[in-house]
């Protein structure tokens, strides 16, 4: 398989923080993979996603996109963001425009597409996320599940090959969660890689090809779900023993 994104010994410490958020993290993200990031709050899941999306620049180590190091210039970051999309935890943090159609069009227009191309990208992403009937609705009048799908469409309209998702299914009801997972599955069929940070163990177990367990900014394991579930020391990093009994 081809590595879409590679993190090599990446470290990052937030200003005013006593300990690093990420320490020597190395990870190969391959094409069409379903990867789930697990770990306690503060383990570094969101930081890893922000670094992979080029929002934060690693203080040590490097990131490679299709084998080439990411250049932190305007042009280099544009290329990275065309290939790597980031869906935030709260859709309200992502939706800025008054109408759904305009919000989804923001990314494609930033990529330099013409109005007509952007329009096609909007229609395509809206159909993929099942929000075509919401295109003329105001963003503030959507339900939580609808907002999550519109936020996803806003990123997918940029046609990324790797999608980074930060707990986007948390807080959704089972129907909305099912909808979002259906979109993810459709994307994986199209060879899009999905890296999903979550606390949802059931989702990780049944959906992921690979689970990355993070502990205090370091990778504790990268393994298929069954292997992680079979290892008591890894399970202890993810959830208390009582949860596993359930």
């Amino acid at each position: 398989m081809t590595a879409v994104l590679t993190l090599e010994e990446v470290s990052y410490r937030f200003p005013d923080s006593p300990s690093p958020a990420l320490r020597d993290v190395s990870l190969h993200i391959e094409r069409g993979q379903r990867i789930v990031l697990l770990g306690r709050n503060g383990a570094g899941k969101s930081t890893l996603l922000l670094i992979a999306a080029g929002i934060l620049r690693p203080q040590r180590g490097s990131i490679r996109l299709d084998g080439a190091p990411v250049v932190y210039s305007r042009q280099g970051l544009r290329r990275l963001r065309q290939c790597v999309g980031l869906v935030m935890q709260s859709p309200d943090d992502q939706l800025f425009s008054a109408s759904v159609r305009q919000d989804i069009s923001f990314g494609p227009l930033n990529l330099g597409l013409s109005a007509e191309e952007a329009h096609h990208a909007v229609i395509e992403a809206a159909a993929l996320c099942d929000v075509t009937d919401l295109l003329d609705r105001p963003t503030h009048a959507l339900s939580g599940g609808q907002k999550a799908r519109v936020a996803l469409a806003g990123v997918l309209a940029m046609r990324p090959r790797c999608l980074l998702v930060d707990e986007a299914t948390s807080g959704l009801d089972l129907w909305a969660r099912h909808h979002v997972l259906q979109v993810f599955n459709r994307l994986v069929e199209q060879e899009t890689t999905i890296l999903l940070a979550t606390h949802d163990l059931a989702l990780a177990r049944c959906w992921a090809d690979l689970v990355v367990v993070l502990r205090e900014g370091q990778i504790a394991a990268v393994a298929p779900p069954a292997q992680v579930w079979a290892d008591p020391s890894l399970r202890a990093l993810i959830a208390p023993p009582e949860i596993w009994l359930e």
């Binding site: 980031l86 992502q94 923001f106 930033n110």
Partner: peptide, 9 residues
């Protein structure tokens, strides 16, 4: 952050 991730310039 979200706007930056979508190529805001």
């Amino acid at each position: 952050l979200a706007l930056t991730a979508r190529g805001f310039s």
